[in-house]
Design a protein around this nucleic acid. Structure first.
Lengths: 249, 249
DNA sequence: CACGGTTAGATTGTTCAACACTTGACTTCT
DNA sequence: AGAAGTCAAGTGTTGAACAATCTAACCGTG
């Protein structure tokens, strides 16, 4: 599509981007096995290129590679969620605390993400709402002024986002989180970083609690209220190895 | 006993390990270009396997890949060093502060690293001394109890170690650093985490100052600059299409 | 019926040889 | 000398092949 653009990226990177997007969109759900031959054929690339792409994504944590058994979309455990929220607290709170001294122009981006979030919530587009939500929090890390940390955090948030796609956040009072984000943004603009940190900490605790509860509910067998695209199909066929943990079956 | 314990690693991973070791040992110095054909031939693997290996290392930050120009060992800039030490302060100090509540058995490992460090310094084996030094600090991160963070920190320390190999630390009063490490270890064992954090912060500032000074001396004095066409901005990692936000704005 | 071993098919791991495309240096022309 | 063209070297990518191994069905024996 981008003829005029510089196609200065390798095909393997492009394929990795495509797969990354599909995973983060929920099109490829956790646990889904990825076979080299059909997938590479469907994307019109060779097996070697596809291998490079899966190698990239497995190093990012989005795919899990088992020797001679292929790759599959990673599956977040409850322990993973705890670990990730531990990281979020450890990195986001000091970020806003450093926001006053390191004053940068991340504020407009934050405002943008906030507005996108609000709009998505208004449209009841939960997938995009989650995306803007996490983008908002990723932006906070910019206050650290550390490219390596930003890159790392981006990966972590990607993992979390992948784990969130199988949770329908629609039932989970997502609109109620809009004021919290707005408050954070306002306090940040006002330079009241300590209050902001407190609100953020509370918000993270709350967010972790909700997600953990939903995940335990799912793994305990409570059914989701709404699926994504496919109608129920819940009866019968065991679709692969993970029979008990599957959120849909 | 299992006959083959971890024979379950792909050749690409083995090749990546070999190259990683050569880079971290200083055998492959920053800036060195790596050509696919000779290198893969010398290791007895195919070009594709070598490409997978270089892909791994470029995502780890040890190699820098420029499209159609090949890969080269990454070169740390002064800005990179600042960034890495910023990270070290941000992660190591809270780690020791959390050491009291999170009681773990990292102490013996710390003691081990300390003794290895002392032994290496006594033998004037500076390369191994650096290795034990950095291992000691990596162990501190274990107090966070976060596997993702440990993995990330390991990579960062790897980059730093790669940048340190071209600095002969022998002239840099390395023996003087032994007491600091011992002090840290003692304070940690005694549970005096605040004192420990203070000593550690001082030590990190000192370490960064020394390394920065040596690096500026080198870049001002010796103009030894090898490598492929892009000498600036070394530790960029992979130039691929990172989907979300390019960390380099 | 349960159980362990065998076999066949499928899938991944790895190699090899080719071709397309880019780069950088070299050559040539004005 | 400077601009434009030429060319070898190297990377990016492909497709086919073979080896190694996992999976599942099959089978005979107790």
């Amino acid at each position: 599509m981008e003829h005029s653009q510089i196609h200065r990226v390798s095909v393997a990177d492009q394929v990795a981007s495509i797969l990354r997007q599909r995973i983060l969109n929920g099109e490829l759900r956790p646990g889904t096995p990825l076979q080299e031959v059909p997938l590479s054929a469907s994307l019109g690339v060779s097996r070697n290129t596809m291998r490079e792409a899966t190698r990239i994504l497995s190093l990012e944590g989005l795919l899990k590679r088992s020797i001679h058994r292929g790759v599959a979309v990673s599956q977040l455990s409850l322990k993973d969620v705890q670990e990730i929220y531990h990281l979020r607290r450890m990195l986001e709170i000091p970020a806003v605390l450093a926001a006053r001294s390191n004053h940068t122009d991340v504020q407009p981006d934050l405002q943008n993400a906030l507005e996108g979030y609000e709009g998505a919530v208004r449209r009841r587009d939960w997938a995009r709402a989650v995306e803007f939500d996490l983008q908002f929090h990723s932006l906070l890390i910019r206050f650290h002024h550390n490219r390596r940390l930003e890159s790392f955090y981006q990966r972590v948030i990607g993992e979390l986002r992948m784990g969130m796609v199988l949770v329908d956040r629609g039932h989970d009072n997502p609109g109620g989180l809009v004021p919290v984000h707005r408050k954070i943004c306002q306090l940040l603009a006002a330079g009241k970083v300590k209050q902001c940190a407190a609100v953020l900490a509370q918000h993270l605790d709350d967010s972790e609690f909700r997600l953990s509860r939903v995940m335990t509910d799912i793994s305990n067998g409570k059914r989701k209220q709404r699926g994504i695209g496919h109608p129920a199909n819940a009866a019968g066929g065991d679709n692969g190895a993970q029979s008990n943990k599957s959120s849909r079956g």
